[in-house]
């Protein structure tokens, strides 16, 4: 029979994970239960990845994994082995803004700004998916990003603009 101490040390055992974050290769040992969201914020200081609900419901923690948008709060670091993770800090050079970020600034597409990094990451993916054709399409395929301030009309303006459309 295993002792409780043995059981606990086995439970907390660290998992080897090798993956990329914003273009930098990382080799880390991490406890199985650590979520990608907590690790990016607490270990790498990438606080652009926001914790809203921590339950997959709000989209504030949206990042790209191998180019696809996911919620980092419901993903373990251990599951990222071999993957490439992109956060809002990684979408443009240091001190620069990407096209979508620029559009958000031009259209004043935020109030408190808490949902904004998640909105931007989701919008970048949305445009890549070819789903930014109409405002209705944008509304539907951005629905996983909630904005408590209700800045939706301006967020949609920014996305239409960034996708090269006419802001009506």
């Amino acid at each position: 029979m295993k002792t409780r101490e043995e059981a606990l040390s086995r439970l907390g055992a660290s998992v080897g994970v090798e993956f990329g974050v914003n273009g930098v290769r990382r080799r880390v040992g991490v406890e199985g239960r650590v979520t990608l969201l907590d690790w990016l914020r607490d270990e790498l200081g990438l606080t652009g990845v926001k914790k809203g609900c921590d339950q997959g419901a709000c989209g504030a923690c949206t990042v790209l994994v191998d180019g696809k948008r996911v919620v980092a709060c419901l993903m373990l670091v251990a599951q990222c082995d071999g993957r490439e993770v992109t956060t809002v800090e990684g979408v443009a050079g240091v001190g620069e803004a990407g096209a979508v970020q620029d559009a958000f600034v031009r259209h004043d597409a935020f109030q408190c700004g808490y949902c904004t990094p998640g909105q931007i990451m989701s919008a970048i993916a949305l445009i890549g998916e070819g789903r930014a054709g109409t405002r209705e399409e944008i509304a539907e395929f951005m629905s996983g990003n909630l904005c408590r301030c209700g800045a939706y009309p301006r967020i949609r303006d920014a996305i239409v603009d960034a996708a090269g459309g006419e802001v009506g």
Binding site: G56, G59, R69, L74, S122, L126, F141, S143, G144
Partner: peptide, 9 residues
């Protein structure tokens, strides 16, 4: 169902 983020996972 769900959102694009969740459907990717």
């Amino acid at each position: 169902g769900a959102s694009v983020q969740l459907r990717n996972m």
